[in-house]
Amino acid sequence: MKKILIIEDDTSISSELKDLLDNAGYEGIIIKDFESSFEEIKKENPDLILLDINIPKLNGEMLLQKIRKESNVPIIMVTSKNTEADEVLSMSYGADDYITKPYNPTILLLRINNIFKRMENKNDVLTYNDLTLDPKKGIIKNGKEEFILTKNEMIIFIFLLSNRGNIVTRDDLMTDLWNNDSYINDNALNVNISRLRTKLKDFGYEDAIETRKGQGYILK
């Protein structure tokens, strides 16, 4: 399980953030002692750090510089400072991403996921049972047959696949689509899901995407 360190002095936010990360399958760890935050980071050896700028003692930007001298651990700055200058400064100090409060929690999870994906640098081919998925070419295939997935179908399928076995809400799917600049509406989402179902059915996976009424979808 990926360890994510939360450095945030607002206790309400940090505990909700921990719940969010835990529910998403990460291990969220909250740093409580800002006096020795740097030592604590070294001790915990996290896979990613969510760092607020306005923290007591050493501020976030200074802490970021200090971490960067010793480690390349991915860092997302999470802050209510929303000026261009703050962002440029943080990125120049070596932050991997910059998100301003209040943020959409789904977006935060997507950004975290993006960073991990980028790091693992997999050859981008995903699998579902005997099907392989090539997002770059927009192709889904098994040994015999090959279908083209549209951009939206691909986004939806990848999202379901990375949450396989868990319920995915329509809102989560919409957020992911809009995050990829596909500003589709509810009808279009229905159409895309039914087309995706048809294509999966052609591969013999009927009912692979199950509808959970009032909750969302689940990929079995």
């Binding site: 936010i13 943020y103 959409n104």
Partner: peptide
């Protein structure tokens, strides 16, 4: 901050 908190 409370806005972010409520969102979460």
């Amino acid at each position: 901050l409370p806005l972010a908190s409520i969102n979460l």
